[in-house]
């Protein structure tokens, strides 16, 4: 860890703004953003577990909060972020083996991640809602 405060001003290379936006670029950013979302979203899970472990009243409260349409929307978004990050992670594991890095394959993998995450999130919620009756 070098001390960055003592670093002299150096010219910065033209960064993201000079490049045409590509799908793989957006998906790379999305992987990080979904990661941050999932990080803070663990608080919802902790709230749910602690509520279940304390009293039926606390448990009913969180169920009521996430039973509203906005609550459900948040949970659906969280489910989608989860699958997006999971499939994005699988993509990284594939890259770790040295495969799928070419322009065609990487774009295909990015597209598969995007479509797959939406399909899985919708599927999980459809099953959940059917089970709920």
């Amino acid at each position: 860890m070098t001390d960055s405060s003592t670093r002299t001003e150096r010219p910065l290379s033209p960064h993201l703004s000079v490049y045409r936006l590509t799908l793989t670029m957006v998906m790379s950013g999305a992987h990080r953003i979904t990661g941050v979302t999932l990080y803070f979203g663990t608080l919802i899970l902790v709230w749910w577990l602690v509520a279940a472990a304390t009293s039926p009243r606390n448990f009913d409260l969180i169920n009521a909060v996430f039973g509203t349409w906005i609550g459900r929307l948040v949970l659906f978004g969280y489910t989608w972020a989860l699958f997006h990050h999971m499939l994005g992670g699988v993509r990284h594991l594939i890259w770790d083996t040295g495969r799928g890095l070419g322009p065609v394959e990487s774009r295909r993998l990015a597209l598969a991640t995007l479509v797959g995450s939406i399909v899985l999130a919708v599927l999980v919620w459809a099953i959940g809602l059917v089970l709920r009756g």
């Binding site: 663990t42 902790v46 577990l49 602690v50 279940a52 472990a53």
Partner: peptide
């Protein structure tokens, strides 16, 4: 904190 709270809750249940 997240880990401890979650594990504690599961064990308590």
């Amino acid at each position: 904190a997240v880990g401890l709270a979650a594990v504690f809750a599961v064990l308590r249940i």
